[in-house]
Structure formats: C-alpha cells, structure tokens
Design a protein around this nucleic acid. Structure first.
Lengths: 144, 144
DNA sequence: CCGGTTTCTTTCGGAAACGAACGAATCGGC
DNA sequence: GCCGATTCGTTCGTTTCCGAAAGAAACCGG
C-alpha cells in the first residue's frame, strides 16, 4: 500500500507499472499454455482474425515501429509460426501469413487471451471494464 | 477505427498498445525536456519523493525484476544521475541516491510528468481518470 | 520512358525488460 | 561460535522495442 502512494497522482506511471505486470503475467501463461510470447500472441491473434497481412499493417495495428515488427516476425518465421513472402501486387511489400503450426498456436493463444481477459474483467468489474475499454480505445485512436 | 476493431474485446491487448503509445510519447518529451528516458524518470521521481532507496525497494515499487533495476541504475550511474554505494547497515544491500545533477534532472522530469499527466487526464475527463486510477491501483496492488 | 519522389522494409546501435542461475553477505538454530 | 538457509544483487543470454538512416521497389510528371 505504501508502495502505491509513491506513484500516486501520476496516472502515467501507474499505467506503465500495471501494463508491465499484466504483460509479465500474460507472457508467462502464454509461454506455458501456447508456447508463444505475449508479443507473438498479438501478431498471431491479428493474423487469425484478419487473415494474412503486410508488415506495415502489423506495424500500424499494433502500434509498433517498423524495426520492431521486422525482428518480431523474423523470430516467428524461425519458430515456424508464420511465413513471409513478397506481396504479389506490390513488390515492395512483405506478406505475413500463418503456417499450420502457427494456426494451432494462434488458437491456443486465443483461448489463453480470452481467459486472461475474463480474469482481468472479473477483477475490475463490468462497468469499470467498459469504461477502461472506451478510454484506451480513445488513447489508441488518438493521433493515429 | 477499423484498426481498433482488430483488438476489440481484448482489453489486455488494448492496454498494451495504449501503454506503448503513452510510453513512446512520454519518452520523447522527457528526453527533449529533461534529458532522461521514461524508465529513468520513474527512478528519479521515486528518489526525489522518498529519498535514497535500495535496489530491492526500487524493484518492488516499480514492479521491475532485479536484473532490470541493475541495468537501469548502472546506466544512470554512468550518466551521473545517481550514486550507488553499499548499505552501511547491511553489506548485501546497494543504496541508490540522487547526485546534484540527478536532482536537477528529477525536478525537470517531475514538471514534464505533471504536464503529461494533466494532458492525459484532460483527454480522459476527471471522472474516467479517477476510475482508471482506482482500477490500476488495484491491479498494481494485487498479488504484490 | 526515365529521373526523381514516395512508400515500404530492413539494418544498425542502443535501451529496457525477462527468467535462470550464480556468488556474496547476513541471519538463525544449535 | 558455527554452519546451513535465506536474502540480495549481479551476470548471462534472449526478447522486445526505439530512432535514425539506408536500401529496394513502385509510381509519376514531363
């Protein structure tokens, strides 16, 4: 409790700490139950829901700098989760798609994410969850 | 907007993306106006408010793993912002304290943080800010 | 059809974070 | 007083992310 008061009235710092905790918890569970990291799960989730996507699209959707996407996808290719090929309609673009193995991992990750989400929302309560959802959606949309 | 729907109903992913955005924005402003990174600002803020602290205390308060604190503080020592000495009362402990230069940087960082906080709260509104504050405090406290 | 611009991605160097494993110092039971 | 257990911090190797700059491909005005 005393620990909290130290960052009291700095919502910004509080969000960083909370995000770190949530990410650590999610990463641990995802690695144990789906065999992928939290960052990789974000990519898998998108590909599962929206189909194959270009690097730039992943970068924008996940709000990651292009170099971060390059590294992340490269490790996923090495792990056999996705393939990276040249976009047929635009030779500059690189298209990322799930492999069979990647699809299975994505399904498992999806279950874990759903579970984590349920836990989190249960901890917060429905009303607060909705407000948080709106607030963060606004932050993510803002100046995009 | 379409971009948001992709992570819709995954509060967890939304928080991660939002935290990344906020951190990137804060890091840029802190580097420009206070000459320190966002991670360093967190340490400076704590030392300014609570006085010298041991590594383990920083680790717990900021919810960072011990190795992360070692690296962070080492870079800050190299930058002349803090000193690291052996705790007099316990030879195992390492005490971290602000230098004169560090104090000045901490004051500047504090101003920037206050500013960022005001921006964020203005964007969210008072009521939502309070709810968010409570919610994240609960997350940070939980199972600590 | 061709040089310049724009768009997309990668390379580079560094900061920040993690888990696992290790060494040093203290503490506690005997 | 001593020795095992605990606590504290660091080292190691890896992942994830950033900004800046370079490289490659497509587009476009003349």
């Amino acid at each position: 409790m005393a620990r909290i008061r130290a960052v009291d009235r700095r919502l910004f710092l509080l969000i960083e700490i909370a995000a770190r905790r949530l990410n650590r918890e999610a990463d641990k569970r995802l690695k144990a139950e789906a065999g992928v990291s939290a960052a990789q799960a974000g990519v898998l989730f998108l590909l599962l829901r929206r189909g194959q996507r270009r690097m730039g699209s992943l970068s924008k959707t996940l709000s990651l700098n292009p170099p971060a996407v390059t590294g992340l996808v490269d490790r996923m290719v090495r792990a056999g989760l996705v393939t990276k090929t040249t976009d047929q309609t635009d030779g500059r673009g690189a298209m990322v798609a799930l492999t069979a193995e990647g699809s299975e991992a994505a399904e498992r990750a999806d279950i874990v994410l759903r579970d984590l989400n349920a836990d989190l929302e249960a901890r917060l309560g429905d009303e607060v969850s909705d407000i948080l959802h709106d607030a963060f959606t606004r932050i993510v949309i803002a100046e995009s």
